[in-house]
Write a protein that binds this DNA or RNA. Structure first.
Ligand SMILES: NC(=O)c1ccc[n+]([C@@H]2O[C@H](COP(=O)([O-])OP(=O)(O)OC[C@H]3O[C@@H](n4cnc5c(N)ncnc54)[C@H](O)[C@@H]3O)[C@@H](O)[C@H]2O)c1
Ligand SMILES: NC(=O)c1ccc[n+]([C@@H]2O[C@H](COP(=O)([O-])OP(=O)(O)OC[C@H]3O[C@@H](n4cnc5c(N)ncnc54)[C@H](O)[C@@H]3O)[C@@H](O)[C@H]2O)c1
Lengths: 206, 206
DNA sequence: AGTCTTTTGTTAATTATTTAACAATTAAAG
DNA sequence: CTTTAATTGTTAAATAATTAACAAAAGACT
């Protein structure tokens, strides 16, 4: 099967989040328009995405929740566990560690780093905090493949460089400063202000 | 001028973030390829966006940083200050309040809410925390137009309902559960797990 | 049993977004 | 002063993403 479009990948993750919640209830099947409503998209889009990944529901019964969850896993999850670290254990870092812990079976935050001696040696949501100086060593030992950056903006680039040097393959950067990485390192960046300004823009021109 | 495409609005916000940083240095002008490098897009895209908003740079000198910042402000900012509140002062809420404070001239977080009595009455980054029961009253008094949700997932919908009832026009939801709002309320949602799963997907299939 | 309604799966059409191409212009170099 | 290289602005082409259209199947209803 051809690898699905970027946007579909993104939505698959959202579908699964929604499906996992539905699965906790007693529903075994779900219609495209029900999924659509949760994600705020159209039912056609849902059906098209599901078609793209080669799943078929049952006519007039909808999609089997469990099966669809598993299939999405087959597509977007790695075979093996992907190990992740967080650099910078401030408010945002802690929010992320705490939110994420145990949420997914194929992704796991296994180490966090900070430069503040008061934090080093402590555990956050059960994950040990290492000194930033040990980053290289720990990343190699723990076989960490993805790093999340939550340090102050002026430390973002140097942190990214360290992560790259240690052999990481993907970075998720929350510091409000874009970082430069080699082309073979996959980079995602997110800035809340962009989202807020977007809301504000559409609010004002209502 | 026609209102720019959604994606351009998003990038304008990013351009401005980058330009503000450049402006702090002594550079007065910047080339499209320099902006492009910071945002990780192509120079053509940058020029096209700038064309769309009707700005013209000087040939072989690039764009005037200050002018471009101001023009982007004219497009995406509101004439008047847009007042924002945050509901849920946990790790994430505090990270947001702290990060955002004072960053933009036309957007301001003026109130935060929590249900925990220990937090009510305190100030966070200078912003007073009110009891959630006073939400309606404070939002009307303070003329708040946008709400940011950072409460636990199971409180997300009820919080959204409260905000809508109080007359808010836009919501930025960070709780990992989609909320339903009337069509005239602009909604943005973001979930870190989607970003992380995206990174993981592209990392594994490298 | 036959009709109606719902819902999927898929192809085609439409719309949105990005990328390419290139003329025009200007600063710098010789 | 002429040539060269760099850079913008814009139109056209290509690509990506969404939406529409609709046939086929299956349960519900009579
Ligand atoms: N992208 C977003 O939407 C968003 C939202 C909120 C905050 N932020 C940003 O995220 C970052 C963290 O925010 P926060 O509120 O947690 O800040 P914070 O100050 O509470 O935490 C920063 C942490 O990083 C550590 N640190 C500093 N330099 C370091 C280094 N070189 N190596 C390792 N650790 C280092 C500090 O000791 C601290 O623990 C900031 O850059 C902030 O602007 C982004
Ligand atoms: N979208 C993301 O990327 C992302 C990342 C991290 C965390 N989260 C989510 O953000 C939310 C907050 O995370 P956190 O780490 O700050 O959690 P937290 O538990 O530290 O904070 C939640 C706060 O909300 C308050 N609260 C609870 N119910 C409330 C209500 N009905 N009204 C008002 N206040 C209420 C609590 O008193 C607490 O202060 C959680 O839902 C978490 O899953 C999302």
């Amino acid at each position: 099967m051809r690898t699905p479009p970027h946007k579909t990948i993104e939505r698959l993750s959202q579908y699964r989040r929604a499906l996992l919640m539905v699965h906790d209830s007693d529903k075994t099947h779900i219609f495209s328009h029900e999924i659509a409503k949760i994600i705020h998209i159209t039912p056609v889009q849902v059906r098209r995405d599901i078609m793209l990944i080669g799943y078929t529901g049952t006519l007039r019964k909808g999609y089997n929740v469990k099966e669809l969850i598993d299939l999405i896993g087959d597509i977007i999850d790695s075979d093996t566990m992907i190990r992740v670290c967080v650099v910078g254990v401030g408010n945002l870092g802690r929010a992320i560690i705490n939110y994420f812990s145990g949420k997914r079976t194929k992704l796991s935050i296994v180490a966090v780093f900070d430069s503040n001696a008061d934090k080093v040696g402590k555990k956050y949501s059960g994950i040990p905090c290492h000194d930033i100086a040990e980053l290289d060593e720990v990343i190699r030992q723990e076989d960490i493949k993805v790093g999340i950056i939550t340090v102050p903006a002026d430390q973002a680039q140097i942190t990214a460089d360290r992560l790259v040097k240690a052999g990481i393959n993907g970075i998720l950067n929350y510091a409000p400063k874009s970082v430069l990485v080699p082309r073979d390192v996959h980079l995602e960046e997110y800035d809340m202000i962009t989202s807020l300004e977007k809301v504000a823009f559409y609010v004002k021109s209502d």
